[in-house]
Simulated scan of single mutants.
Amino acid sequence: MGEGPLMRWCCRSDILMVHMVLAGLLVLAVGLWLRFDPETVELLTGDGAPDTFFIAVYILLGAGALMMIVGFFGCFGAVRESQCLLASFFACLVIIFGAEIAAGVFGFINKEQIVEEVQKFYSSSIADVTNPNGTAIALIYHKTLNCCGGSTSDASTTLCADAPEETEDCLTAITDFFNEKLHIIGYIGIGVAGVMILGMIFSMVLCCAIRNNREVI
């Protein structure tokens, strides 16, 4: 392979690596938004609040940070036409891809568990009308999700006595709210996987092109 085709592959790979860095930055930004979203933070703050949702968010943050770092290495390897760096880049992508598959399986398996944990947290908070802390947490859910009730406790009936009839129950609102967030994580994961697969393909093709070019020389 001559210098012309090799340079074209280098340029294409550089563009892909830059896109990978930008994709990592986007994933990192979305992860930070999910972690510090005021509504989510309010709903998952308090003694005994479940943290499974945040585990999925932390995995997303880790994937974004690793994508940025690995993308920089890939850019450097493509510019220097280094087989060693490109092979390392490929190996890192394989590891990250495997970790992402594991995280995806974890999220899929625990999707319903995340929602159920939050629902139980809400139900336990509203169960005892004499507990001001629990009542305060329940009121946060009512305000944040624009919902009321969903629990069979007397406290639920008391707190929702003045709520309009068309008000959605909180158990359904919790399901809708966290399913939307988890779908965002899932869609981003699919996009990241696609970018990584392209990165692995381009890095291997470029690595082979560099080797063949050196053999010709």
Rank of each mutant, 00 (worst) to 15 (best):
V57C: 07
I140K: 05
I95W: 07
E100P: 06
I95G: 01
A65M: 09
V105K: 05
F106C: 02
G104I: 03
S88K: 02
F89C: 12
I69G: 07
Y58M: 03
S124E: 13
I109W: 12
F89R: 05
A91P: 03
A102Q: 07
E117H: 10
G64N: 11
G98Q: 11
I101V: 15
F72G: 03
K111R: 15
C75M: 15
L60I: 07
G107Y: 09
M67F: 04
G134S: 03
A63E: 11
K111D: 14
N110F: 10
F90T: 11
I137L: 00
C92W: 04
G104Y: 11
G71W: 06
S88P: 02
R80A: 02
F89W: 11
I109D: 06
I126V: 15
I109G: 03
E81C: 03
L66I: 14
T135C: 00
K143G: 01
N133L: 04
R80Q: 10
K120R: 15
S124Y: 10
P132S: 04
S125C: 08
F106K: 06
I55T: 15
F106S: 04
Q113M: 05
Q83G: 13
I140Y: 01
L139C: 01
I69D: 01
V57F: 02
I140W: 00
P132R: 04
G77R: 02
G71M: 04
G98S: 06
V70F: 06
A56P: 09
E100N: 09
Q113D: 13
N110G: 08
S123W: 05
C84F: 09
I59E: 13
L86F: 13
E117F: 02
M67D: 06
L86W: 09
G107M: 14
L60V: 12
V129K: 05
I55Y: 10
I126Q: 01
I126E: 01
M67N: 10
I59H: 10
V79L: 15
G64T: 12
I140V: 07
G74S: 10
V105M: 11
C84I: 14
G107W: 08
G64W: 11
G74A: 08
S82D: 02
C92N: 10
E117V: 05
Q83K: 14
G64I: 11
Y141V: 07
Y122D: 07
A136I: 00
N133H: 05
V94P: 09
L93S: 09
V129R: 08
F72A: 13
I96M: 15
A87H: 12
A136Q: 02
F90V: 08
F97G: 13
I137P: 00
L60N: 15
A87G: 08
G62M: 08
S125L: 05
I109L: 13
A127I: 02
V57T: 12
L66R: 07
A138S: 08
L61E: 15
I69Y: 05
D128Y: 02
F90K: 11
S88E: 06
A127Y: 05
L60H: 13
A65I: 13
R80W: 00
G77V: 09
A138G: 04
I95E: 03
I95F: 10
L60M: 14
E112T: 08
A103I: 10
K111N: 14
E81M: 09
T130F: 00
V70A: 13
V115N: 09
I55C: 06
T135K: 00
